[in-house]
């Protein structure tokens, strides 16, 4: 492709054509994405203002305050909930992606539609639907108590498990779609070959299919892990104080105490935590040097 692009006679631009054509999108993202992000990092080294906001000068106070005993727990909760949610989403995405890849076109279209529709439904409404379902006065809790699965005093809502459940619910389409995108290109005759050579279907699935859709898996991990780490709405609605994550703390610092440097330090911390998987996926993608549009495979 690059040979074509660098052909001697450019068709659409003058000497500075590339700059002019790049300027609008580059400029926009530089101004509204890169600059505000850098601003946040700088803000975390400012002292907090007496009446909210921030003051002049430099200070490490916001970072030192992150040492408060409640924070390591919240950071740890954010990480483990996100990791477990990712593992469960991949576990659900694999068989669904596999079936989507193998199904006849007509059945596949219907199935794909069924997977996508909840994804097209307002996010807040989907989270809210669980809040109703898990509500202390809701029928699900009454039902579970009546069949003796949980005790009278067990609450389904406002704990870490509720957050995990709803995170899996909200993000599982992000896992299914990239796995399906990879499964669609997977040569399923390889599995028949494996079975002819004596592998069981389970072995063929794990040893042939799963490595075969590796790139889709990578995309799925990133697509689920990142929004999980940055969750705000889910813990806010179903987590209660026992299910708080970094995102909730950021919002509290912004809206409740209006302590910007503190919020900025938390945001920078979240940035660092999420940057790791992104950098990994990005380098992986560059190494495979696939055409840029494809490796995200993720959202439709």
């Amino acid at each position: 492709m690059s040979e074509k692009a660098s052909a001697k006679k450019p068709a659409l631009h003058g000497r500075y054509g590339e700059w002019w054509q790049t300027a609008p999108s580059f400029g926009w993202l530089l101004f509204f994405f890169a600059v505000p992000t850098v601003l946040i990092i700088i803000m975390s080294f400012r002292p907090a203002g007496d009446y909210g906001g921030f003051a002049k000068g430099w200070s490490l106070k916001a970072w030192i305050e992150l040492g408060h005993p409640s924070y390591p727990m919240i950071v740890w909760r954010t990480i483990w909930l996100s990791l477990v949610a990712t593992v469960i989403c991949i576990g659900m995405g694999l068989p669904v992606g596999y079936l989507l890849g193998r199904a006849e076109p007509k059945f596949r279209a219907v199935l794909l539609l069924l997977v996508v529709v909840p994804f097209w439904t307002n996010f807040l409404i989907r989270v809210y639907a669980w809040k109703v379902l898990l509500h202390p006065a809701g029928f699900l809790r009454h039902f579970l108590i009546s069949i003796g699965v949980i005790g009278d005093d067990t609450l389904l809502l406002y704990n870490e498990w509720a957050v995990l459940l709803v995170m899996v619910y909200a993000y599982v389409p992000f896992a299914i779609l990239p796995i399906y995108a990879a499964a669609e290109k997977f040569d399923f005759s390889l599995m028949d070959a494996a079975r002819d050579l004596g592998a069981s279907s389970i072995q063929a699935f794990w040893l042939v299919f799963v490595p075969g859709v590796q790139r889709g898996l990578m995309a799925a991990v990133v697509m689920v892990l990142i929004p999980s780490l940055g969750s705000y709405v889910i813990p806010e609605l179903v987590g209660g104080p026992a299910g708080e994550m970094i995102g909730n703390k950021i919002a509290q610092r912004v809206f409740v105490d209006r302590n910007w440097p503190h919020a900025a330090a938390l945001a920078t911390l979240l940035m660092l935590v999420t940057l790791l998987p992104v950098a990994f996926a990005y380098l992986q993608g560059r190494r495979e040097s696939v055409p840029s549009g494809e490796k995200k495979g993720g959202r439709p």
């Binding site: 993202l29 509204f32 994405f33 600059v35 505000p36 992000t37 601003l39 946040i40 803000m43 990133v222 990142i226 929004p227 780490l229 940055g230 705000y232 970094i246 995102g247 950021i250 919002a251 912004v254 910007w260 919020a263 900025a264 945001a267 979240l270 940035m271 999420t274 992104v278 996926a281 995200k296």
Partner: peptide
């Protein structure tokens, strides 16, 4: 921006 969590974009734009 695709991989940045919403909370981060939200707070940085708000402060900006």
């Amino acid at each position: 921006p695709i991989v940045a969590p919403d909370v981060l974009m939200g707070i940085s734009l708000a402060i900006f």
